[in-house]
Design a protein around this nucleic acid. Structure first.
Lengths: 235, 235
DNA sequence: CCTACCTGATTGTAAGACAATCTTCCGTGA
DNA sequence: TCACGGAAGATTGTCTTACAATCAGGTAGG
C-alpha cells in the first residue's frame, strides 16, 4: 500500500482516471477510503500513524493531516496517545444514518421538484447516465464510487450550498454502512436495479412516490443489513 | 492573539470554563472561531499560516492541522500556495443554509416527537435552561456559543448519530451567516425572544406549528439578513 | 506597451527530535 | 499467590528546521 507511482510501476494507486493532480495528503485519504471499501481495512481494525506513513510512503505530518480529515468525517476513530481504529457502526447507527439520509435526500428532491426549468432534473439524469457507465465496472471500488457519485449528484442537483458541504460526512457514513454489508458489494446487478427503481420514481415527479422509493432504497436496505448482521453487535 | 496561558497571565484565551483540557490544535481552532464570531476576522480577510502561527504562539504544523479542519467545515477557504481567507457567503448561500437547516431541524423534531417516553423532549428543555443561563451574558462569544449549544441540543435530543456528525459543518455555517449579520450579535433581547418563541412552539408538540416556528426562526431571519445586506454582493 | 523572467510569498512535504499520555509487563512485598 | 507500583515501550502531540512546489507581482527589455 503505497501512493508513490514509481513504487508501483507508473500507475498511481488511485488510478489513472484522476485528471487534476491531488496533494499527497488527499492521495493518502483516497487510499485509506479505498482500503475500507475493499475490506482490506475492516471496521475495528487498529492503525498507527507510523505504520500508515511507512506503508503509504509519506511522512507522518502528511499522514496526520489525512487522518485528521478522515477522523472528522467519521471513517476513523482516534484515541489520543493510543492509536486509531477504523470506525464501525452499530445497528442503531446504521438506522440513524438511513433515517437522516432519507431526510436529506428529500430536501434535495424538494429543491429539484421546485425547479420549473427542468435544469435540476436534467442534472439528475446526467448523474444517472454516469452511474450506468460504471455500474458494472469490474473494479468494486469504481462501482462504489459510481454509487456515491450518483447520490452526490442528486444533492448537487438541488444546488443547495449547505447540502453539498454536508456530503463528505454523509459519504463517509454511507461507506461505513456499506463496509458492514459484504453482500452488497458483490451484487452489481442488484445495485443497478435498486438505483434504477429510484430513478423511475424520481422521473414520476410525485413527491410521495419518490419518498417511498428513497425509504425503500435506504431505510429498508438498512433494516435488511441489520437483520443480516443479526446477533453480531458491532459495538 | 495567543493561546498560551503563560503569555496571558494565567487564564487561557478560551476562557476558564473549559474543564477538559484541549489539544493545542483544538485551542487554535477555538480561537479562530472566536475571532470570526467577534468580527476580528471578517469574511474575506486574508490569512497566512505563518502569521497565525506567530500570533497564536504555536508551530506551523499545529496551525495547519487546525486550519485543515476549519477549511473542511467551511469557515476558511484555502487557496493552495496562495494563502487562506475567511469564508464569506453569498445571499443565495445564506438562503440555502437556512433551507437546509430547517429540513435538518425538522428531522430532529420528528425524532423528538416520535419519542413516547418524553425523554427527548426533556433533553430539549435542558438545552433551553442552559441557553437561558447564558443568553444575556456580557460576552458576545458566550452568547453565540449559548445559541449554538441550544440548537445543537435539539439535534442531540433526536439521538440521531448522523445528525450529530453533521453538526460541526452546520455550526460553521451558522457562524458564517451570523458573522454577516452584525446587528444580530448586538441584540441579546431579540435573540432570547426568538428562541423563546421557538421553545413555545416546540412545547405544543404540533409538527406544523413547530415547522412554522423554525421557518420563522431561520428562513425568515435569513431573508431579513439578505435584505439588510441589500446591494452588497458578498461574493 | 507587451512579454518574459526573476524574485518573493506562501503552502506542501519531509526528517528528526522530544514531550505527553497510556498500556503492559515485571518485580517486590505482603 | 496476588496486588500494587514503577518502569519501559508504544503511540500520539508538538516543535524546529529545511527545502520543494506553485503562484503572483514587479521589473526589464524589446
Amino acid at each position: 500500500m503505497s501512493i508513490n507511482a514509481d513504487e508501483r510501476g507508473g500507475v498511481p494507486p488511485w488510478g489513472p482516471t484522476v485528471v487534476a493532480s491531488v496533494s499527497r495528503k488527499d492521495a493518502v485519504g483516497i487510499e485509506i477510503r479505498r482500503a475500507i471499501i475493499l475490506g482490506r481495512l475492516k471496521p475495528g481494525d487498529k492503525l498507527t500513524e507510523t505504520q500508515l506513513a511507512t506503508s503509504l510512503g509519506v511522512s507522518r505530518p502528511t499522514v496526520r493531516e489525512a487522518l485528521n480529515q478522515l477522523t472528522r468525517e467519521g471513517l476513523i476513530v482516534q484515541e489520543p496517545y493510543r492509536g486509531l481504529r477504523v470506525a464501525d457502526v452499530t445497528k442503531e447507527q446504521i438506522r440513524d444514518i438511513a433515517v437522516a439520509r432519507v431526510g436529506l435526500d428529500m430536501l434535495a428532491i424538494d429543491a429539484i421538484l421546485a425547479d420549473q426549468t427542468g435544469r435540476r432534473m436534467q442534472i439528475v439524469e446526467e448523474g444517472w447516465e454516469q452511474f450506468e457507465r460504471y455500474a458494472f465496472h469490474p473494479d468494486p471500488v469504481v462501482q462504489h464510487e459510481a454509487h456515491l457519485a450518483f447520490h452526490r449528484q442528486i444533492w448537487a442537483a438541488s444546488e443547495n450550498y449547505l447540502l453539498l458541504k454536508l456530503w463528505p460526512v454523509t459519504e463517509a457514513h454511507i461507506t461505513l454502512a456499506i463496509a458492514e454489508d459484504q453482500t452488497a458489494r458483490d451484487d452489481p446487478e442488484r445495485a443497478h436495479r435498486v438505483h434504477a427503481d429510484l430513478m423511475v420514481a424520481i422521473r414520476t415527479k410525485d413527491r410521495d412516490t419518490i419518498e417511498a422509493a428513497f425509504v425503500a432504497h435506504t431505510l429498508t436496505s438498512a433494516e435488511e443489513l441489520i437483520t443480516l448482521l443479526g446477533g453480531e453487535e458491532t459495538q
